[in-house]
Design a protein around this nucleic acid. Structure first.
Lengths: 239, 239
DNA sequence: ATTAGTTCTAGTCATTTTGACTATAACTAG
DNA sequence: CTAGTTATAGTCAAAATGACTAGAACTAAT
């Protein structure tokens, strides 16, 4: 925080100062519910260690450095605070309301990430970093509840048409696992047979010769996703 | 531009300075093509009157004031530069690449607007403000070509599922006019009868008792759109 | 006044997609 | 060897879609 501007401390000057820019990230992962065991949406939050909103939970985030792109800033901050390096990372929205932060005006450019269970398991969990169920959040710092709500809404929307679900899964997966992702995010049951028919209709899903052994039932075939990730302006047309 | 920070002019300090924040807007309107007369997508650009990119065309935009929300800043700037006050205004994306602007780092939060023909006709056109066909742009200042491309991509996407088309039209419209909007944006012909069947299936479109007179043919019935505008986090759930 | 030209509008019909459901396959646990 | 479980294929009716036909309702030209 040691910019040349940190010295201009009085209120009058702060009112004229350009709004400060922050980057935050909503990170979604699927984890088994504690009650039912079915996969549900979780996200990691960090405890604030200073004012404002000291001791409350908040989205991981931090300032934008002068030598990194927005996406790089999100990546770096994610790694530093949670230890995660998600392969799916996309811009969500820029929040710039006047009173998001009590003292000073902050514009937050928020990214969202989807992480696979294997990645999520590696995430640091500590006194100040903890995972929460996305649909059962307490009151968070700043406007972060609204941000998470919006991220959830966007996630559900994107599920409908798009190949986003696979970023919750590893390289190989069964069609039932894909269905579980949809069921967790959309929060409703889907007919296994019809769902399988639809998924098999999309060309981005490739059969492998492998089967997943170990269940108490007929072993399901493993599939692989061959499509491209999200297509925001930062990812599009980058060869 | 006269903030307390404008005085810190040397390069070393600028590198440490937080990136400056700007708001820009991509404004789309439908206008009859000069050749075919069919409606096509146009947008207004402003000529830059200072460096960098002096004399080149650019998206209307400007700095974010400390006392206005992002959306308000977009609205105000639009009004000041083009005289337009679009009823449809939504955030597009935050562009924050390192070298978007040669001297200083600029993060632009870009909005997009759709304006109705009646509004568009009122737009100031002058030496320094001119409308261009969206698919035939020359080289623009900064990364504005990429921004327009992305806006076009998003627009076409939103057309597929959503009620965005009506924001190009006035309060009353014929189904053929709606079809013309789709044809202009998607750039392909649609079957009039099938298109009408689909549109009539959506509950947000309401028949009026009126007819549009004056054509050299059977007068078409006028309809009205009763749905809500876009649903970004700034517009959603605002009662 | 009649006719030709135009678009509006309703409808037909074959094809495709969807949703609900049935039945068999292939494994494990006992 | 049997019961339990999920995987997977398939059936069937309903709904949506795409290509097309035809009459309705206006204007402009004869």
């Amino acid at each position: 925080m040691n910019t040349v501007y940190a010295t201009s401390a009085n209120v009058a000057e702060r009112r004229l100062a350009p709004p400060s820019l922050a980057i935050s990230t909503v990170i979604f992962a699927l984890r088994p519910s504690e009650s039912s065991g079915r996969p549900t949406l979780w996200l990691p939050l960090v405890r604030r260690i200073r004012e404002p909103f000291k001791d409350m939970w908040a989205l991981p985030g931090g300032p934008l450095r002068h030598d990194e792109s927005l996406q790089d800033a999100a990546s770096r901050n994610l790694r530093e605070t949670t230890g995660l390096a998600p392969q799916y990372l996309e811009q969500l929205y820029a929040f710039g309301g006047l009173h998001r932060s009590p003292a000073q005006r902050v514009v937050s450019i928020v990214y969202w990430a989807l992480v696979q269970p294997t990645e999520a398991a590696l995430a640091d969990e500590s006194e100040n970093v903890r995972w929460f169920r996305a649909d059962r959040l307490a009151e968070l710092a700043f406007d972060h509840n609204a941000i998470v709500d919006y991220a959830l809404w966007r996630l559900r929307n994107k599920m409908a048409y798009g190949s986003i679900a696979y970023h919750f899964l590893g390289e190989f997966f069964t069609l039932a696992q894909v269905r579980e992702v949809y069921e967790a995010v959309l929060d409703r049951q889907l007919d296994p047979a019809n769902f399988r028919r639809q998924i098999k209709g999309t060309p981005e899903i490739e059969e492998t010769g492998e089967y997943l052994q170990g269940g108490k039932h007929r072993p399901p075939r493993l599939y692989r996703f061959t499509g491209t990730p999200g297509l925001g302006p930062d990812n599009r047309s980058t060869p």
